[in-house]
Nucleic acid binder design. Sequence first.
DNA 1: GGTCGGATGACAGTTGTGTGACAAAACCCC
DNA 2: GGGGTTTTGTCACACAACTGTCATCCGACC
Lengths: 222, 222
Amino acid sequence: MTAVLVIEDDDRIRLAMLLALDDEGYDAYGVATAEEGLRRQRTTPADNVLVDLMLPGMDGFECIRQLRRDDDVPIVVISARDDTHDIVAALEAGADDYVVKPVAIKELSARLRALRRRGRATQVPTQVFGDLEISPDAGEVRRAGQPVPVTRTEFRLLCELAEHAGKVLSRQQLLQRVWGYDTGDERLVDVHVGRVRQKIEQDPANPRHLVTLRGLGYKLQR
Amino acid sequence: MTAVLVIEDDDRIRLAMLLALDDEGYDAYGVATAEEGLRRQRTTPADNVLVDLMLPGMDGFECIRQLRRDDDVPIVVISARDDTHDIVAALEAGADDYVVKPVAIKELSARLRALRRRGRATQVPTQVFGDLEISPDAGEVRRAGQPVPVTRTEFRLLCELAEHAGKVLSRQQLLQRVWGYDTGDERLVDVHVGRVRQKIEQDPANPRHLVTLRGLGYKLQR
DNA sequence: GGTCGGATGACAGTTGTGTGACAAAACCCC
DNA sequence: GGGGTTTTGTCACACAACTGTCATCCGACC
């Protein structure tokens, strides 16, 4: 069953949504604050998160950003305000959809389905590329069994490449996935790739794993 | 640049959207009917499709279904009707988002970005032509299992030919699809075909895979 | 055998990539 | 909170790879 987390401070609205979602066949549960929602999502991740923008304490935007930081769950904003600025800000923060209250439950349900259909990547176990090991969960990179110290950015870059092992990722895609930039200087990627190479390649000038595909991007291979 | 196809029968609205999207940095082009949109998407696929629901001839729902049939492009419905039934039906048909006219361009842009971020799940399978393998995802070409270094242009050319395996593509079509030129010197294609042959054919003078059809163009065959 | 479309080698201009230096920002340990 | 350290992003330069053009040659087809 699909689990849905509802983050909404108004008890009556939250309860109504939970009931309606339940009726639609979802396994729905709710919390009243962003903080609690984040904790909940860390411990028992739901398949979808619905979040109100106006919350006591941490607001919805920040909540989205934090959710997004360590999870790729589809996030739908449920807001009373039908305001372009809010919508844009929420989507920029990392939300996937934005619907305005009051919400027709059928529509919400359909939107959730559409979002899930678009699908998502699963957790990656330790990946091995020859003498190179990348453990996304453990946050560790090893070469020939020896831990290699990498910075956070370098690590994310490696994970992203590892997740699509053998596939080219364009600088644009990497900027998007590693840095979250929709636009920006692609050379940034080059520089970090160079730094990663210094650490993981035996001969950084002739990379065997992290290779360049001229005009296309980079790829990590075995 | 991100290409956006707008399917909208009202000339004024379509034009306004195209201008606005253009301003936002999209490569936007529009058509007035579903049929034309489908044709266009088949020949020169956009990265996003915006479609109105009320169209003369084939309606928006059917258009979405057909688009969805052979493509995983993110589809956003732009409709004047803020009706739950329509929204649900459109999402069921395969749309990814639904916004109500009039549309704030910033919002639309943000939604498109959010959609693209979610990314395309489909992977292009490796195509095999005898001892020749072309992997669009991996950005790699192999002959007899050995990787063949090809340049970006050569790679695009090969992918384009591979996508239409067994079918002739005229120089004009190749110029259009690989280079994006609407006009230009067709000899350019010859030169690159020649270079590709040097790399992928056992006997470049007697090509077995990348063959010339005199007066017509080139085709890639098994 | 002439003509036209196609193949090819050379070349110069352009583009893409790697890298070292540096400043700003973030982080950490008192 | 403060000072040192690490990490990050920007920039400029150098170099290598790629691209498109052109002239010439070749071979198929009528």
